[in-house]
Amino acid sequence: MIVAKRKPFDEIKDFLKDYKKVLTAGCGTCVAVCLAGGEKEVAVLNAELDMARRLDDNPIELGAITIERQCDREYLEALDSMVGDYDAVLSLACGAGIQFLAERYPEKPVFPGVDTTFIGVNQDVGWYEERCRSCSSCVLGLTAGICPVTMCAKGLYNGPCGGTNKGSCEISKDQPCAWYMIYERLSKQNRLDNILKITPVQDWQNQKPRTVIQPGYKTSENSAEK
């Protein structure tokens, strides 16, 4: 899932200082699961904003809505009848959701309430770890299911650097060396040959905005956009 962190309160407060009526829009998918931008986080943030603005003698009227997914037109539609009543929208969705919302209401100032952080896994309640950089050319088949692009601090493709340190990365003893883990796992699977071969330079595909049209879903409209 996409993992996000709530933005510092002062930054959010500063975004909204000139607005009297703001709609806080949560997203019920990734950011809700990672406890950053779901219904509950919307309520907490609104309570904070309400109190802070009262203390400033600059009260704010806050609306709250959490939709299933802000990255999906089908759900965004629920906001159409509400947005007009507000001066601005504060979105707690990931960066994609925020942009899709802002694109739908181009006249309306839209602000981010979270910092979108990574694609990751749920280690425990409230504890997430990055696992994927969406590079568009997955090498997990070669590397025993451990991503060197994400898990190696230098994103190396051909084994560890000289800083690999008793199984840890040079940046921190708490950060495992991805290539150490890859070696150990491949070794157990008798697949070390995989990493003795030289992996050629990567054709980076994440250097410009990407579009995916799944096979069988091509239309005159989406192929024209390409």
Partner: peptide, 8 residues
């Protein structure tokens, strides 16, 4: 911590 942020 949240309250401190707000000024309470």
């Amino acid at each position: 911590r949240l309250l401190e942020e707000i000024g309470i």
